[in-house]
């Protein structure tokens, strides 16, 4: 019910906000979806990934390359991004889920950094260090000829984000979500019940990766540009800050934190420039000290007290 209400309010935003704010919100929503997909891994599956931005990058490059060489249709690009996300999740996850705790963290961090190197070195395909530029503006069912592009693209992004959230929420509530939580709480017992623990974990990584790649496609379509930095530790850390700030046991919390942080980053980027990273680091440290359960934790505490 609350989700439908939130979607309705968000859908009405083009009638309230100007073009600039709408574009900020579009970026915020895309990152919100990606942060929520990371929360599924960190909070629900107990798999702390430090390389989640690799999925963003894989989705963004897949969508961008599809736009340049195959099709200008936003839907086709989204499909390509999700497919690439699934393949990447299966290939890297197959190894990653065999590790635990810190090893998982180290392994995912390494995968993210290797992905950056791969994107930088394969210059002929990805544009190398300069990034993939000249991505054509995607077509959106022809609606873009009838209305301002910012508005149509916002609704497209909102639809993708809503669908991604629906997938994440369904997985969390369904039997797979219960199995995922089970492997987090007690591996040995889940194995005794006959579950394949790596299999369940791989499913979690694949769902989170596919959803994150969808968010990456939105980033590529919105900016019509992808760079190797999109895959790097910096972005992975930003996503993790969103999850910590919003609360790792929640989906809406990280998404809200993402909208806030992306808006803050884009508004202050002119004034702060590279010093934004100092703000990010400070926020990170403060979150770990002061908000062990994130803002969602504060919310729950208040609800319990009342």
């Amino acid at each position: 019910m609350r989700a439908i209400l939130a979607a309705a309010v968000l859908a009405a935003m083009p009638f309230v906000l100007g073009a600039y704010q709408l574009s900020l919100l579009t970026g915020g929503l895309a990152y919100g979806l990606m942060a929520a997909s990371l929360a599924l891994l960190v909070g629900h599956a107990g798999l702390p990934s430090l390389g989640h931005a690799a999925f963003l990058g894989v989705g963004a490059y897949a969508a961008g390359l599809t736009a340049k060489h195959l099709s200008e249709s936003a839907v086709v690009q989204l499909g390509a991004a999700v497919l690439a996300g699934v393949v990447f999740a299966l290939v890297t996850g197959w190894f990653a889920v065999r590790t635990r705790g810190f090893f998982f963290l180290m392994f995912t961090l390494a995968i993210g950094e290797i992905a950056v190197q791969a994107a930088t070195r394969s210059g002929r395909v990805t544009g190398g260090d300069n990034g993939l530029s000249g991505i054509p503006v995607s077509t959106l069912f022809g609606l873009e000829t009838a209305m301002p592009y910012v508005v149509v693209f916002y609704w497209w992004a909102l639809a993708v984000v809503a669908a991604g959230f629906a997938v994440l929420a369904a997985v969390r509530r369904g039997p797979l979500g219960a199995a995922i939580a089970g492997t987090r709480e007690n591996e040995a017992r889940m194995a005794a019940f006959g579950y394949s623990v790596p299999g369940v974990r791989l499913a979690a990584v694949t769902v989170a990766g596919a959803v994150c790649a969808a968010g990456g496609a939105l980033v590529a379509q919105k900016d019509t540009f992808v760079a190797p930095t999109h895959l790097g530790v910096g972005v992975s850390v930003l996503l993790l800050v969103m999850v910590l700030l919003g609360g790792r046991d929640s989906l809406a919390g990280p998404a809200l934190a993402a909208v806030g942080l992306i808006a803050l980053r884009d508004v202050t980027s002119g004034a702060l420039g590279d010093k934004w990273l100092l703000v990010e680091g400070a926020l990170f440290v403060l979150c770990v000290y002061l908000l062990p359960e994130g803002l969602a934790g504060l919310w729950r505490k208040r609800a319990r007290a009342a």
Partner: peptide
């Protein structure tokens, strides 16, 4: 007493602060 993850993440946050300070 908090999870190991929190300690690792704290060192990561402090690392960002240290390196960005140096680059500044």
């Amino acid at each position: 007493g908090r999870g190991h993850l929190d300690q690792a993440l704290l060192t990561l946050g402090l690392a960002i602060l240290l390196s960005e300070f140096l680059l500044g």
